[in-house]
Structures are given as C-alpha cells and as structure tokens.
Design a protein around this nucleic acid. Structure first.
Length: 271
DNA sequence: CATACGTCCTGCCAGC
DNA sequence: TGCTGGCAGGACGTAT
C-alpha cells in the first residue's frame, strides 16, 4: 500500500477505532516480520500498555504508548486490520495484537516486506532524524524544494521518492505529481527553475491531499483498517495508463523505467 | 517472463 | 591511500 495517503487513511481509522485501547497478548505467527525484537519480548513490551494515539511519520504507522512506540511499516502489501472477536483469521496473518476488549489488530502481508518494530524514546528520536520533511507540513515550502533540488543531479522522479528528502511520495504519487506540475520525470533535479519547483510543490501537496480525501489508491493490495479499498484509483491521471490518451491533450501516455520502477507521463504536456 | 503501492544493502566512482 | 557522499542496481517473498 503504502504511500502517504494510504498510511494516513489507516492511521486515522486506527486512531478512531483503537485509541485508548490496551494491549493484551501479542501472537507472532511470522517472526521474520518483527525487526529487532523477539516475539516474546514484543508481547512483554506491549502487554497492558495503553494506546495514547495513533499517528503517522513518513510511511509508518506509529502507536504512541508514551514514551515508547510500536511502529508498523506496511512494505508493499501489508495490511493492518481491526478485527472483531470470533472473526476468521485473514490470509497471510503475520502478527495478532489482542486488545483487552477482545478486538484484535491484525498485521497481514503476502510478500512480507513490511515489518513491526518497537522504539524507546531515544531510538525513535534517532530514527526520525533519518527521514526528510513531511510534505503536508508548513516546513515544506516552494523555496525549500527549489534549494534542495538544486544540489542533486538525479532525475526528479527519483529525487521525489527519496525518503531522506521528502517523505511519503512513492511510485504512484511521484508520477501523478509530476504530471500535475507538467514536468518530465527524467529532468535532473537541479534543472528545475524556481517557478517549476513552485509548481511541483503545489502538485505534491495537491495530489496527496486529494488522495487522502478519497482514502488512498488501491492498485493491488491496499486496504484500510476495516478492509476496504481506497477510492483514488479513478482519479489517477497517468499511473498505469500507458497507451491511454492524456486527459489534457490526448497524446498517448508513455511508460518508462527509472531506477527499476515504472514511470508514467505525457510526452507532450510534461517538459 | 515481467511486473507489483518499499526499503535496505552493497559496490562503484568521484572528490577531498 | 583512505574516507565520504552520491548514486545505480539488486535483494528481499509471493502473486498474477
């Protein structure tokens, strides 16, 4: 799933559904989905702990236990589903977090690129420093974007997806933002003028905000915390539309590969 | 065989 | 020579 809008959707669902909840026993069915913790240790760390709130940092779901944190990254195919007592286990169940009221938070992941970690306060502070700016925060400005891109020769699409600079933008929204900004994904980052950086800034914020409103994009596997797909697929303008007419000029959308990932763009609109 | 909503690691190369 | 930062490429399970 999981670019910023999808993670944000799950986080809002979880905050509404399980905030104030208390962990019971944690059952680890796939130990390799835990990073840096043993199964019996995570169960011990969580038992009787209250979820103060659920937040997002970059593409991570953060259960704030105060002062430590349980952090889930969904990888490509991970899901975090709130289940009622007695429900059948979903496929590819990796970790079951039981809550004191009988409900469960279930972490499933076909490909198992996702993971669960536990951070104490200092470890979390250190980890957070490795991530770039939140694109929907006030610190992400057109000026900052222009100055930061100025120092890099990588393609702007690759630049956008580097979580050390700006977080939350993945393969779908990188293509979508560049289409909205009318920029060719192959442009070297340092070649953007202040005006173009300004357009990109608006495009990134615009596409991410709209996608959140539509509860994210379900391309293949993404589901929200209640198992429902996102509604933004129908609003995608270029992603997965190779050969289809550009919504602005009818030119066929092209697909190229950059850094091993598909990029979609209109060769006429995007310069 | 190619492709999939993400990260992390390795290894190369340039520059100090 | 040796370290460092930037960057490309591949690995990581599984499914379609």
């Amino acid at each position: 799933m999981p670019e910023l809008p999808e993670v944000e959707t799950v986080v809002r669902d979880l905050d509404r559904l399980v905030r104030g909840g208390v962990f019971g026993e944690t059952e680890v069915l796939r130990p390799d989905m835990l990073e840096g913790v043993e199964p019996d240790r995570i169960s011990l760390l969580l038992r009787d702990r209250r979820i103060e709130r659920v937040t997002r940092r970059a593409k991570n779901i953060v259960f704030e236990l105060v002062p430590d944190r349980l952090v889930v990254n969904l990888g490509m195919t991970g899901r975090l589903l709130v289940g009622q007592p007695g429900e059948a286990d979903p496929p590819y169940l990796g970790v079951r977090f039981r809550l004191a009221d009988g409900r469960e938070i279930r972490f499933t992941d076909v490909r198992r690129f996702g993971n669960v970690r536990h951070f104490d306060q200092p470890a979390w502070t250190a980890r957070e420093r490795q991530w770039g700016l939140e694109p929907l925060s006030p610190s992400f400005t057109p000026e900052w974007l222009h100055q930061s891109t100025a120092g890099s020769r990588v393609a702007i699409k690759t630049w956008l997806m580097d979580q050390r600079r700006v977080v939350g933008v993945g393969n779908i929204y990188a293509s979508e933002a560049l289409f909205r900004a009318r920029l060719d994904p192959r442009r070297p980052a340092h070649s953007l003028s202040p005006t173009e950086a300004g357009r990109l800034h608006g495009a990134v914020q615009g596409v991410l905000s709209e996608a959140i409103q539509f509860r994210g994009t379900t391309f293949l596997d993404y589901r929200d915390a209640e198992g429902n797909p996102g509604g933004f697929v129908a609003r995608l303008r270029v992603y997965d539309r190779a050969g289809a007419p550009c919504l602005a000029c009818d030119t066929p959308i092209e697909r190229i590969v950059q850094g091993g990932r598909s990029s979609f763009f209109c060769p006429r609109c995007q310069r």
